[in-house]
């Protein structure tokens, strides 16, 4: 009996990607996530865009060896295969957008007797100071300015923790992933690049081509993820309002989620 059910569950493992269920999805759809997203903005970036990504990912992987993988595994599997970039893009966007919506979910205020605090943990703050040499509040302004110069088109901002437990800021072009550094997509190759950027690319190229075993180890983990695609801010903020949007996101993060992502 046991054996039979085991077999069954391995064979009919789900291969359809669906939009993850969020707590209080009904009130989120009605009220949005103030002050970051209106209800219309929330519907676009989550109810519609996430559904779009999931459906497209399902269709792109159905009937292939990737169909039983989670988006995370699809990212790692396709990151090294340029001919599967379309699948990589979908999987990476699906995963990133989930991380994004999780870390901006409104914080349940709790009852009067038990107030839930929403603030960065002391470990986070001290880790930020150690890694960047400045306070979190000052760093936020730098991040906004850097996003504006580095992400000309679509992209993601990701604060990550690397294997040495240092925090780093990554500006991912289009659908880059924080999990595998050759596919971070940190440089916009459509503009003229300078020698530092070229050296960085060349170093990565050497690492990838000299690595005979084909395994590059990257233990980076995302701590904060911000969606800088049009689907996230265009509806509520307009083309020129991206700075305002980033400002609102960075000042209204859900620290209960983020503090837990950090290595303690």
């Amino acid at each position: 009996m046991f054996k039979k059910s085991m077999l069954k569950s391995t064979i009919i493992r789900r291969s359809i990607h669906t939009v993850p269920k969020l707590p209080n999805i009904n009130s989120l759809s009605k009220q949005g996530i103030p002050p970051i997203l209106s209800s219309k903005g929330f519907n676009t970036v989550w109810n519609q865009y996430q559904a779009y990504l999931c459906d497209q990912l399902t269709m792109a992987t159905a009937g292939t060896s990737l169909e039983s993988y989670y988006p995370f595994h699809i990212i790692l599997n396709t990151a090294k295969k340029p001919f599967q970039t379309n699948i990589f893009n979908l999987a990476s966007a699906t995963h990133n957008n989930h991380l994004f919506i999780e870390n901006i979910l409104p914080v349940d205020k709790g009852s009067n007797s038990q107030k839930v605090e929403n603030r960065p943990s002391d470990i986070f703050l001290s880790r930020i100071e150690m890694s960047f040499g400045k306070k979190w509040d000052d760093l936020k302004d730098n991040i906004i300015a850097d996003i504006n110069t580095k992400l000309l088109g679509q992209g993601w901002f990701c604060l990550v923790e690397n294997a040495q437990k240092q925090l780093q800021a990554l500006y991912l072009q289009n659908n880059g992933t924080p999990y595998y550094f050759p596919r971070n997509q940190l440089i916009d190759m459509n503009s003229a690049i300078n020698i530092d950027e070229f050296s960085y690319l060349q170093k990565i190229r050497e690492m990838v081509s000299n690595n005979k075993n084909g395994k590059i180890q990257d233990w980076t983990l995302p701590i904060i993820m911000i969606n800088v695609w049009d689907f996230a801010y265009l509806e509520d903020y307009g083309v020129a309002g991206r700075k305002k949007y980033l400002h609102n996101v960075l000042n209204n993060l859900n620290w209960n989620v983020i503090n837990k992502r950090l290595y303690n």
């Binding site: 676009t44 865009y49 779009y52 679509q154 695609w229 049009d230 689907f231 265009l234 509806e235 083309v239």
Partner: peptide, 13 residues
């Protein structure tokens, strides 16, 4: 190709 041009009238899909 940018969603900036078509998102408002045509939506995500």
């Amino acid at each position: 190709a940018s969603p900036k041009f078509w998102l408002y009238d045509y939506g995500v899909f």
